[in-house]
Every structure is written in structure tokens, then in C-alpha cells.
Nucleic acid binder design. Structure first.
Length: 157
DNA sequence: GCCAACGTTGGC
DNA sequence: GCCAACGTTGGC
């Protein structure tokens, strides 16, 4: 896979809930349950084919576990309208569902998770959003950052 | 399990 | 519209 002209993103998931191996088995998954406006707005700006760093959060170790890509653009997140869903939002309505989700497809898993602690030691990654915006679950990634992380991840760094 | 960071809510 | 209280995220 070479660099495309599309967008590049980092998306976090807790591997106990949904890991890169879950995505590998399912091939595609709807990224529902995002309840943060900034993250939602980034999803709305995604295009099919955009590349994604799949990040394991709250993990041992936390870090980038592999690559995914966007396989369907943002549509309303129906879980916000479902009272039985843990993601139910009483303020969401069919006319204004408030929240969005994209579909993500598996691309590859790194030989091992590229740990956050390792990323922090790479000088060229010093201004990665991940370090400053640690609570933002979906964020854009600069091309040079993305390519470097992919290179390190494939090496099993 | 602790706690810092920070987004959201709600009283005023 | 400010801001204190509260809840959540996520590293360690």
C-alpha cells in the first residue's frame, strides 16, 4: 500500500471491547458510539479510502496495533436512538440523530503493537496530536507522521 | 486503582 | 455566557 491522496486518521478502540483482531475477523465494522463532537466532526469529514491507524487504548501496551481504512462515509449513528443501547442519547431524535458513524475495514495488523511509550521517544513525532490531545478518540494524522508510524509498525518496533 | 486532563452540564 | 461541579478518558 502506498500513500494515497486521501485523509489520514487515528482511531482509538479499547481492545477488550474491539481490537484489531476483531476487525480482522469481521473485515468491516461500523464505528458507532462516538459521543464527542470533535471526534464526530472528524468522522463527517472522512472519505472512503482514507487511511486509519488503529490504536489500542487502555491496553497493555497502549499503542498503534495496525492499519484500517474507511469503507463507508458517515451516516447517522442509530445506537443514539435505541434506548436499549449503552450509547443511547435521550437528546437524539430521528430528525436530528446528533451522532454519526463511519464504517472501517481491516487492512493489516502490525507484528506487535507499536507502543505509545515507543512513539514518544521518536523525535520526528514530537508534535503528534496524540500526545497533546490524549482524550480525543478520533484525530487527523499528518502524512509524514503517518508514514513514519507505518514504517515503525511494520518493523515491529 | 489512581488521578490528571478535559469535555459537558446546569445554575445563576 | 460564566464557571463550578461532575463525569469520562486513558496513561501509568
Amino acid at each position: 500500500m502506498s500513500s494515497s491522496d486521501g485523509g489520514r486518521w487515528l482511531m482509538k478502540s479499547e481492545p477488550d471491547v474491539f481490537s484489531i483482531d476483531h476487525l480482522r475477523k469481521k473485515k468491516r465494522e461500523r464505528w458507532d458510539g462516538v459521543r464527542n463532537y470533535q471526534a464526530r466532526n472528524f468522522m463527517r469529514s472522512m472519505a472512503v479510502g482514507d487511511q486509519v491507524l488503529f490504536y489500542h487504548s487502555n491496553a497493555e501496551p497502549s499503542g498503534v496495533a495496525g492499519l484500517a481504512r474507511i469503507t463507508a462515509p458517515a451516516i447517522p449513528d442509530h445506537t443514539a436512538l435505541d434506548p436499549s443501547s449503552e450509547y443511547f442519547d435521550p437528546k437524539a431524535t430521528p430528525a436530528d440523530p446528533r451522532w454519526s458513524m463511519v464504517e472501517v475495514g481491516f487492512v493489516e495488523a502490525f507484528p506487535r503493537v507499536l507502543a505509545l511509550a515507543t512513539l514518544r521517544q521518536v523525535p520526528d513525532l514530537a508534535d503528534l496530536w496524540l500526545f497533546q490531545r490524549s482524550r480525543l478518540s478520533i484525530q487527523p494524522v499528518e502524512r509524514h507522521h503517518f508514514d513514519l508510524i507505518v514504517s515503525l509498525g511494520r518493523q515491529g518496533a
